[in-house]
Design a protein around this nucleic acid. Sequence first.
DNA 1: CCTGCTATTAGTAATTATTACTGTTTTTAT
DNA 2: ATAAAAACAGTAATAATTACTAATAGCAGG
Lengths: 147, 147
Amino acid sequence: MFLRNTGKDRRALEKKQVRRMTPQRKTILAVLRQDNAHPSADEIYDLVRKRLPSVSLGTIYRNLELLSGSGEIQKLAIGGTIKRYDWNPKKHYHIRCLRCGRVDDAPIAPLKQLENELYGATIYTIIGHTLEFEGLCPACSKQAEPV
Amino acid sequence: MFLRNTGKDRRALEKKQVRRMTPQRKTILAVLRQDNAHPSADEIYDLVRKRLPSVSLGTIYRNLELLSGSGEIQKLAIGGTIKRYDWNPKKHYHIRCLRCGRVDDAPIAPLKQLENELYGATIYTIIGHTLEFEGLCPACSKQAEPV
DNA sequence: CCTGCTATTAGTAATTATTACTGTTTTTAT
DNA sequence: ATAAAAACAGTAATAATTACTAATAGCAGG
């Protein structure tokens, strides 16, 4: 949970706690918890705006940062570019569609002993790992096959 | 000539081949192949400019895209934000320092049977997976421990 | 050797996701 | 009740990447 000292990472180091459950915060949590699609900040913004039309994107980002920092939700860096958010803070894996970008949970239990294989073989102090499967979702599988 | 899609996906679909080995292309390959640090496009840009001062950043990106598309190098989306490039096109895993962002190869063989565990359990057509370890590099380990 | 055709280039503009800043409002603590 | 802290909306700035444009370079066929 410690990252390097660019702006965003500096904030993570501070381990700032969520103090108050503001309406904005509450709504962000609510829309995230009824969404299994691992939405991006922008998608969450759209969903929250339906309930709180005057909410600002900065508030979305700030609160997603606070909530993931305090362990209530999880921030995912899947596939490279954009960040996605997961209401489920527990460690689990994901599978991503290479065609449309859809992300689902991968139905496989965390591999706890995986890091043991590196002990002694790497100069790093190992803290964790992320595992991501890639494939085609049902809709894109159909399109991809020329039938 | 252009299917409607996001830029990067469109380009991936085209599977455009590298036709000529231009000096720019050759230099990009050369600097990448003598660098085990998995440099970013910007770092490669700096390295190439030492040999070809007038090269442009767009050329770096375009050629890294072409070279990874044709399988000569590998494009990595490690840790989320920026992309890094690997002279080694063979499948292997990486470990990233959470503090300074350093990336090294992880000394562990690819888990070939991992995807089998998902067959029948997911609605996706599985194509592959990426596994990334997180930890602290030696330098950052020392700093992190209060001694 | 010329002519035309693409691939490629440098340089620049645009885009996207995210982070930072600013002035105001809201909540908490005294 | 009042001062301090936290959070907010709105906007500006940044970083990485992608797209565009006009010029150049190298090959293919006559």
